[in-house]
Amino acid sequence: MEQKLQKQPKIFSKVPPEEYFVSGHRGCVGCGEALAVRLVCKALGPNVIIANATGCMEVVSSQLPNTAWGVPWIHTLFENTAAVASGIECGLKVLRKKGRYSNENTIVAAMAGDGGTADIGMQALSGALERGHRFVYICFDNEAYMNTGIQRSSTTPFGASTTTSPAGKKSIGQLTWKKDLPSIAIAHNIPYVATASPSYPFDLINKVKKATTMKGPSYLHVFSVCPTGWRSAPELAIELGRLAVKTGIFPLYEVENGVYKINHEPSKLDPVKDYLKLQGRFRHLSDDTIKEIEKRVNSNFIELKRKMMCDDMRVV
């Protein structure tokens, strides 16, 4: 199996001390996404150019005349971040070829939220993945349009109450199941797709590092707890990220050149209720609905394990 995989980068067991996304930004207290961005930036290091979609991270970090970014960074619009990154990558490539840019290892990274990735930015993302640009796309998924006031997106989980999928007498909130973005990325046959969470910082950092070594596009889907939108206690942001993994709601896995690997496999999944009960957005759910969610989560996890086992058998 090892021969199939690319050479593994150095495994980080310490968080790099340098800061590239610095304090002073306007993120909410307990923002899981700001922590995730900070860790991702530490992993990317200084030799990077970042294209950032419109959304929470852009708004909290860039109000004129201030910036929280210690690396070259550009924000243009909401839905076009993968396309902007395509232009950056090709621009650097041609400048290198013509001897006008000598830095060989500059990483091109794109960052967007779940709305900017799964909904309005889906087309630009798909185009960029298909064209094979060498860049790292990172989706910070806080499961709704938080910047505009907690409206549902296609990654909002089933049963979550948002301002456009409110729970009411005739609705349990979001009536659709979360769009599976990593699988959509995998379908583009790109070298590397992974899920990660700032609640597992070393796993996150190492996945970012690995993504930067790929010769083509890589896609990271990063779980980003939003205390404001999820109506959870700010001090529980890390705990919720861990519970999401332990319950199987957000499994940590990676797909390298088509080969699945689950990075954190609980021997037994915790009840989803442990995760749901800490969040106001799920407060209205009945035990029956929670059971339905649990059934779906378990079935998804079994499917993921099946994919991994199939790969193991294939490699053997």
Partner: peptide, 17 residues
């Protein structure tokens, strides 16, 4: 690119560098 929206967006990226 896969659309004109992305055409001009990619132009932004390449002009930015």
């Amino acid at each position: 690119v896969e659309s004109e929206h992305s055409a001009m967006s990619a132009c932004l990226g390449s002009a930015a560098v």
